[in-house]
Structures are given as C-alpha cells and as structure tokens.
Amino acid sequence: MNFSFTEVQSMLRDSITKFVQDEYAFSVREKLAKTDLGFSVDNWQTFAELGWLSIPFAEEQGGFGGSVVDSMVLMEEFGKGLVLEPFIATVLLFGGALNHCGNRELMNSLIPSIIDGSLQGSVACFERQSRFDLSDVATKASKNAGSYILSGEKVIVYNGASADKIIVSARTSSDQFNDDGITLFLVDANASGIEKTSYRMMDGQMVANITFDNVAIEAVISTVGEGLTLLQKVVDETIVAVGGETMGVMEKLHSTTVEYSKTRKQFGVAIGSFQVLQHRMVDMFMACEQTRSLLYRAACSVTEGKDDAPQDVLALKTMIGRAGKLVGDHALQIHGGIGMTDELDVGHYVKRLMMINSFFGDADYSQQKFSELSLSGLSCAS
C-alpha cells in the first residue's frame, strides 16, 4: 500500500512530537495522573491555541477540516507520550457525534466552544449489563410535555466527571437488545437528577459512572430511534484514531526495549546479543508493522465510506488487541522485574495497551463480530 502523509500532516506530527518531548516528560505525566482532575487544564488550552482541537471539524465551524487520517496522525504522537488530556472523549466521541448529527444550529453552537477549549464533553453509551454491546440499552427516555426525560445508569463514561455536556444513548422504543429504538440525547452535565461517581482506570484515565433520574434533555442528537447508526459511525472513526495511538505506544515500547537490550548486561555481555531475545524484538517489530498495515487500510476504508469499512475496523481492533499483548508481554519480559515497577514508564505503556484493547470491544469480541459480519455478507451474496 502506497500511503504517504501530506506536508500539513507531517507538520502536525512534528509539532505534537516537539510538545511531547519538551512538555510531557514521563515524570510530568505521572504528576498529572495523580491529580483529582487527571489532566492539565493549561495543556488543554495549549491544544486549543495550537489548533489541535479543531482537526476533525469543518472550516465553517472554525475547524481545520481534517479527516480520520489527521486524527490518526495526532493520536500516534499522543500515544508516544501517554497523553492524558481528554481528546478522545471530547473531540473524537462527543465532537464526532455532533459532527454527524446534521443539526447545523447545534453544531454551530457547540463545536466552536470545543475548538477554543471552553467546552468539554463525553459520550455515555455503556451500561453494567451491556459489556461491549452498544445496542444493549436499558436507559429509558420518556416523552414529557413535547420533550424527553432520561432515567437510567451509564458506566465507564470517559471524561464524565469533567464534561460540561454529555451525549447519552437511551431507548425510546423496542426492547432492551434491539438495534432500533435507540436515540442520542444531549444533556447538561450539571442538570438536576444527575449523579456522578468518578474513578481512575489503571492507565490513569479518569472515568465516571453516571445515574440519570428524570433528567431533562437539551436536544435530540440523532433521528429518534436511529441513534445506533450514528453512534457506530463515530465509534468506527474513533477506533481508527485510537489505532494511531496504539502504534505510538507499541513503537515506543519497541524502541525502549531495543535500547535497554544494548545497555543491560548479563554474563558479561549485553542481553541484546542473545539470539532468543533478538527474535522476540523482531516479533515486536513485525507486530507493529502488521498493525500499521491494517490501520492504514481501515483509515482509507472509513475515509472513503467503503461498504467493508466496518469489517476493516473490526479487523484492526482485533489486531490491536493481539499485537498489543505481544508487544507488551515481550517488553516486560525483556526488561525483567524493573519493567513492572511504577518508577519505569514501560509498565505504564503496557497498561495503556491493555485499556485500549478493552476500548469498545476487546480482541475476542471484535473477532467474533468480524466473523458474524463476514458470514452475513456471504449469506447475502448467495
């Protein structure tokens, strides 16, 4: 595949690389991870000033007019620094849902505030019983005086504690497991009837469980009863971008491990001279390259709106889980006991890979869904 970046994308990558190297040392990142907020407000404003928060949005809203590939380029560099700021939750998920909602008035009202850094958002779409199934929705939206009120609970809401606005998936018709009957609603994060319980994931990311008790909505984001289609489109685009982050994490682990093998000595020689460890580091390199190939395929499919884009995204998500585990395991094993300590960054990169694997479906789940889609396509063809 002949895949090359534009001059603008290369400039974007270089600017983020410089920021991560100069401003996001591992020691700084660890201090941020231990704060109540879990990230830096100053960094978020810097992202806004540098135009990074505008990347996926149209020029008419003051955005950069970028594509999934632009977001992928940015996220790869974020992955190398284990950046904690809520770009995924606010820009890719929340902003992505607004981007595809078709409500120009709502888009023009909210997207400029995302771009200038004054508005943070989140998407609440997971429930305790649903695991990775976005169609398993028990949260209810009931008609009330021409509008709707929400009741239910959402879990693992990324940036849920810091968000100003939340997009919530709720059932307006059909039964709990039906693809139809799901609608996306916009609510104020501080509205009456909302209760949040925030907690920290093992990779340092802050999430929240949120209960809704007869909460008034601000707007309907999707066509009533057809929210799952919009949500899945946003999730597919986000997974491609997170695939870029995965590449950044895996390549950082690979380069760190190779450098360590050149300096760590055993039996009087560098451990990098041992053939069995060389084989493992080659396996790490191959896992990175295979993942990158699938990432580029998925990015092209999603950007061009191809019919097989959902399958390509699921294939990518499966590869992310498998390759991420291989790279993480080898990095820890070659580093030995020190790789498990909090003082060394290796273990933190591995934890991030583990959390990325579970993000909107782990490798096993994604492989199963890929098989189901493939069999469905064969049935239709016959």
Rank of each mutant, 00 (worst) to 15 (best):
M250F: 03
I271E: 04
Q205G: 10
Q232R: 11
M206V: 12
T211P: 01
N214I: 06
M247G: 05
F177N: 13
K233P: 10
T172E: 07
S173D: 12
T223L: 12
K262D: 07
N190V: 10
F267L: 11
F274H: 00
V168K: 00
D175T: 09
I210F: 03
L230I: 05
G146D: 06
Q266R: 08
V240F: 04
T197G: 09
V187L: 00
A170E: 09
F185V: 01
L184T: 00
I194M: 07
D164G: 10
I271A: 02
I156S: 12
R264H: 14
I182L: 08
K196Q: 11
S222D: 01
V215F: 03
Y158G: 14
V207Q: 07
L231Y: 02
H254A: 11
E226D: 12
A191K: 07
T197C: 09
I156C: 11
V269S: 01
K262Y: 08
T183N: 04
S222V: 01
G152Y: 03
T223G: 13
D164N: 10
T257P: 01
E153C: 09
D180G: 13
I167G: 07
G204D: 01
D203F: 08
M201T: 11
V269H: 00
R171Q: 06
D236R: 10
I194K: 07
I167N: 07
A145K: 15
V240H: 04
E251Q: 14
V224T: 13
L150M: 02
T256M: 15
S192D: 13
V258F: 05
S222A: 04
A170V: 06
D236G: 07
Q232P: 05
M202H: 13
Y199E: 09
S174A: 13
N159E: 06
D213L: 07
K233A: 15
D236T: 06
V207Y: 01
I166W: 06
A270T: 00
E218S: 09
K233V: 10
I221W: 06
A161S: 12
M206Q: 11
A161H: 12
Q266W: 08
G225T: 00
D175Q: 08
S174H: 13
L228E: 05
T256E: 15
T229A: 15
A208V: 06
A170C: 09
E153I: 09
F212D: 07
T238F: 04
G152K: 05
S255H: 14
Y260L: 14
G204F: 01
N159M: 05
V157Y: 00
V215Q: 02
E251R: 15
R171T: 02
A208G: 05
V240L: 03
D213K: 12
G248I: 04
Y148F: 10
